[in-house]
C-alpha cells in the first residue's frame, strides 16, 4: 500500500495540470484582490460589490459562484476572511475537484492501470492510495491558496491582519477536512464512472451549485413523504463546505459526522466496485 501511495505521489508531482492549476490559482488570487480594491474605490462598482455581499449568504439559491472577500473597517483584511470566502464559495473545491478528476482517471485513460492493477493483492488499495494522494494535494493546494491570497492583499496595497488565530486555525482545519472529503468523494466517483468527461461534468456541477435543481426536486419529494422543511443539501459535504462559515461552531459536530459518513460510504462503495468489476 505504501509503495502504491509513493507511486501515486510521484506521478502527482509530475503532472502538468498540477502546476497549471497552481499558477491559475496564484494569478487569479492576486489579480482578484487588486481588481477588488480598485472596484471599491469606484462608487458604481462599490454598489455592485455591496449587492454581491448581501446575497452571498444564500449560496444554493443560484447557479454559479459568489466570492466576495470581506474587508475590515480600516480597509485591511483578516486572514480568516481571505480564506473563508473562496472556501465557502466552493472556488477551492472546484479547483481541487478539477485536478482530482484529472489525477484519478489518468491511470485509466493512459492504460497505466494495466501495469499494476492486476498485481494488487487487494484492489481497494488502488482507491485508498489515490485518496491519500489527493489528500496531500488538497492540503498543499489550500496552503498555496492562503499564501497567494495574502500576497494578493499586499499587492493591492492592504495588509493581512492575523488575529484570533486559534479560532481561525480551527475553522481552516474543519474546512480542510471537508475539502479532503470532497476530493475523496470525487476520487471515488472517478473510480466508479472511470470517465474523465462524466466525472468532470459532475464535479463542476457540484461545485457550481448546478445540482440545485436536483436537490430541490429531492426536497420536494421528501416534503411530500412527510419530512417538513427538508433541505437535502444541508446533509451533503458540498452543502457543509458552503454553510460552515467562521464562527458557526454550532454545526461543527454534525459537519464532521456528515463528512465522516460520506468519506466511509464512498470509500466502501468504490472499493467494492473496483474489486468486483474488471479493471480493463
Amino acid at each position: 500500500m505504501l509503495n502504491l501511495i509513493r507511486m501515486n505521489l510521484y506521478r502527482l508531482v509530475r503532472m502538468k495540470s498540477l502546476y497549471v492549476i497552481v499558477i491559475i490559482t496564484v494569478v487569479m488570487n492576486i489579480a482578484t484582490m487588486i481588481i477588488d480594491e480598485q472596484m471599491k474605490s469606484d462608487p458604481k462598482q462599490a454598489e455592485l460589490l455591496q449587492m454581491a455581499e448581501e446575497t452571498k449568504d444564500d449560496p444554493v439559491s443560484n447557479i454559479g459562484m459568489n466570492i466576495t472577500v470581506t474587508s475590515r473597517a480600516d480597509g485591511n483584511y483578516n486572514f480568516v476572511d481571505v480564506m473563508a470566502s473562496p472556501l465557502c464559495g466552493m472556488l477551492c473545491a472546484l479547483l481541487i475537484g478539477i485536478f482530482t478528476v484529472i489525477f484519478a482517471t489518468a491511470d485509466f485513460s493512459t492504460g497505466d492501470i494495466k501495469n499494476y492493477g492486476g498485481a494488487m493483492k487487494h484492489r481497494y488499495q488502488i482507491v485508498v492510495s489515490k485518496v491519500v494522494s489527493v489528500a496531500f494535494y488538497t492540503v498543499g493546494f489550500l496552503v498555496v491558496f492562503g499564501v497567494s491570497g495574502c500576497i494578493g492583499v499586499y499587492a493591492a496595497g492592504r495588509k493581512v491582519v492575523f488575529e484570533k488565530m486559534g479560532a481561525a486555525m480551527g475553522y481552516l482545519g474543519v474546512q480542510t477536512v471537508l475539502h479532503i472529503v470532497f476530493a475523496a468523494v470525487i476520487t471515488c466517483i472517478c473510480m466508479i464512472l472511470r470517465s474523465n468527461l462524466l466525472s468532470m461534468i459532475l464535479t463542476v456541477c457540484i461545485s457550481m451549485h448546478a445540482l440545485a435543481a436536483v436537490y430541490a426536486l429531492l426536497d420536494k419529494a421528501l416534503v411530500k413523504a412527510g419530512w417538513k422543511n427538508a433541505n437535502i443539501v444541508h446533509y451533503t459535504v458540498s452543502g457543509r463546505i458552503m454553510e460552515y462559515a467562521p464562527g458557526r461552531t454550532n454545526i461543527l459536530g454534525s459537519t464532521l459526522l456528515i463528512a465522516g459518513i460520506f468519506f466511509v460510504a464512498f470509500l466502501v462503495v468504490s472499493s467494492i466496485f473496483v474489486t468486483k468489476k474488471d479493471l480493463v
Binding site: 503532472m15 502538468k16 492504460g111 494495466k114 492486476g118 493483492k121
Partner: peptide, 17 residues
Amino acid sequence: RGRVSCLIEEPGLYPNM
C-alpha cells in the same frame, strides 16, 4: 499476483513523463 507482470494491448505510459 505480485509474481506476474504484464503488457496487455498498447503500453500504459504517461505521455508527459
